[in-house]
Simulated scan of single mutants.
Amino acid sequence: MESLKIVVAAVLALMVSPAIAQSDAELMFANPSKLTQTDGEDVYNAICAGCHMRDGQGAVGAGMYPALANNTNLEFPGYPIYLIIHGQKAMPPLGDVLNDEQIAAVVDYIRTSFGNNYPEETPVQDVTESR
């Protein structure tokens, strides 16, 4: 229950802030080791859905959160891996929040969901090498 409270607070903070620095992301996820989800859908729902929406359609509000649905930028896993680790614009860097297995799992999830059909699995080693 404690980890759920941390995740909910983090998602709400993300929706309010258009851009945040690495240290801010670390503060929002006060204890990243408590985020124990390793299933891609669970990680997506806990971290990503607050901005990209549960259906992957994206949103516009405090920032512009691109749609992941039918997104050809997801064809190659290196692109979402880089963005998740390093962030870009309103996307906070989550490299210190998620471990390599969680990142690979969420990349696989978004590449095979929301109308995307890129079924090749993302090797955890690709995430490790992108850090």
Rank of each mutant, 00 (worst) to 15 (best):
R54K: 13
D55T: 07
G56R: 02
G56Q: 02
G56S: 06
G56T: 07
Q57L: 14
G58E: 02
G58Q: 05
A59D: 09
A59K: 11
V60H: 06
V60M: 08
G61D: 03
G61T: 04
G61Q: 03
G61P: 00
A62R: 06
G63Q: 04
M64H: 13
M64I: 15
M64G: 09
Y65N: 12
P66R: 08
A67S: 15
A69R: 06
N70L: 14
N71W: 02
T72Q: 14
N73W: 11
N73C: 07
L74D: 10
F76V: 15
G78E: 04
G78V: 11
Y79C: 10
Y79A: 14
P80V: 05
P80W: 00
P80H: 03
I81G: 01
Y82H: 12
Y82P: 02
L83A: 13
I84T: 14
H86M: 11
G87L: 08
G87K: 05
K89S: 14
A90R: 05
M91A: 09
M91P: 10
P93A: 12
P93N: 05
G95R: 14
G95I: 09
G95E: 04
G95L: 10
D96W: 11
D96E: 15
V97I: 15
V97N: 00
V97L: 01
L98P: 11
L98G: 05
N99A: 06
N99M: 06
N99C: 11
N99P: 10
E101D: 15
E101R: 15
E101C: 14
Q102C: 10
I103D: 02
A104I: 14
A104K: 01
A104W: 06
A105N: 11
V107F: 01
V107G: 00
V107A: 13
D108K: 11
D108I: 00
D108H: 14
D108L: 02
Y109T: 04
Y109M: 04
I110R: 04
T112L: 00
T112R: 13
T112S: 11
T112Q: 14
F114C: 05
G115I: 12
G115P: 08
N116S: 09
N116V: 07
N116W: 01
N117Q: 14
N117P: 05
Y118K: 11
Y118V: 10
Y118Q: 09
P119C: 03
E120P: 06
E120A: 15
E120G: 12
E120I: 12
E120S: 13
T122L: 02
T122P: 03
T122E: 03
Q125M: 13
D126C: 00
D126S: 15
D126G: 13
V127L: 11
V127C: 01
V127T: 09
